[in-house]
Design a protein around this nucleic acid. Structure first.
Lengths: 220, 220
DNA sequence: CGCAAACTTGCAACACGTTATAAACTTGAT
DNA sequence: ATCAAGTTTATAACGTGTTGCAAGTTTGCG
């Protein structure tokens, strides 16, 4: 890497570190570009040169912990099958979000409520890509019906999930309710697509602790 | 109504009319408070006096068409039952949104991406209240299992729907895909709760045109 | 009418995200 | 060392939502 690139990378890291520190120590509403630049020891223009906008700073700030969390969660040991793995990932994400609820909520909120539609769209699309291999594997192993359009299924599930995360980020409910809604919609949606062993795994999830229903799903 | 109240109501109407005109003629991004005040023939301070914030102006702007649309849609003639009525309402809403897509999208987006969490929460809560009577009636008529917590079911469905609308408003996909996601999630969720006649109505909806699936739901 | 309360107006101000401009600095290659 | 290209910096500016303040206007009441 050339010296030029090294310096840019160094400034990028300083800016992201400053952003995280400000959010943790002073709160999301104190994260202005002027303050960020001052804390990072950099001019106001530099974050714009290196990231493009405040939104893209926040996207970069989320990327590292999210990638770390997902790659770790996707390797959790699982006994039964692929669909169970999905819910195990959700549980891991739940635990991680609980550790840093205010941080993730604030960053995600500001990120999603900005004008920069293109930057948001890119972030969302990369999120949709994460879960596709899992669902494809589930279909390959016969947990999902062979004639189901698994790409559309994945898109639907991802969009549902991100939409619910967006409402959580907008402070309309707490983390526990968010996870309940996600579990509920994953369960309901996958129940349409699952077959055989997949259905067994799903009913196991339902028996665990599905918040909404007064009763397990009707078996007719 | 006292003269004082009359004048306030008159100014409110002028401001809302000006807002609508600006959005339609010049686009959402031209709707600044200064411009709005100028077009409405009113001082910058007055919208704040009468509504409190830009967010609340937009909420007021949405309220009238939304209430009109929903009260009309809820009285649509329906042959079969309550669950079918839900999907009929959705179809009516779809048609209305299609007439004014940019308008509704822009207003909803600005409304939901503001800082005023309380105002947003109030709007969301009133939206949740709309569908509850229908679901309660469905349960009363045996279309939904008697032991299902219909209040939680309604909250879940409403939040799913609003979350998806939020993603549509943020320009992540178009109106047709929005309706597909809503139909899909309503169908999947209600299939857990429906019994007897309710299930029959749902399968009728599924046969209509459910976008995602390559196949009808597995009958096991 | 006359007076107090309610309301609107005009103006300045604040902090914000973002951009333009021009000067200073750093790097890479000759 | 020199020079051009690439980056950062300082400063000012624009338009934004929102608020404070003092003056002006309108309304309701005696």
């Amino acid at each position: 890497m050339s010296l030029r690139e090294q310096n840019k990378a160094y400034n990028r890291r300083r800016i992201l570190a400053a952003a995280e520190q400000i959010i943790r120590a002073e709160g999301m509403d104190k994260l202005s570009m002027r303050h960020l630049a001052r804390v990072a020891g950099v001019s106001l223009r530099t974050p714009y040169n290196l990231f493009g906008s405040k939104t893209e700073v926040l996207i970069a700030l989320l990327q590292e912990p999210v990638v770390t969390l997902l790659t770790e969660a996707l390797q959790l040991p699982v006994r039964d099958g692929v669909l169970q793995r999905l819910f195990a990932v959700l549980a891991r994400v739940h635990a991680r979000l609980a550790e840093d609820e205010a941080f993730f909520r604030g960053v995600y909120w500001q990120m999603m409520s900005s004008d920069h539609a293109e930057a948001r769209e890119q972030a969302v699309m990369s999120a949709i890509r994460v879960s596709l291999p899992l669902l494809q594997r589930a279909q390959f192993q016969g947990e999902i019906a062979a004639n189901f359009d698994v790409v559309a299924l994945n898109r639907h599930l991802s969009i549902l999930t991100l939409a619910l995360i967006g409402m959580w980020a907008s402070s309309l409910f707490g983390l526990d309710e968010l996870i309940t809604h996600i579990r509920e919609s994953w369960y309901s949606t996958l129940r349409r697509a699952a077959t055989g062993d997949g259905l067994v795994q799903l009913e196991h999830q339902c028996a665990d602790a599905l918040g909404m229903a007064g009763a397990p799903a009707p078996t007719a």
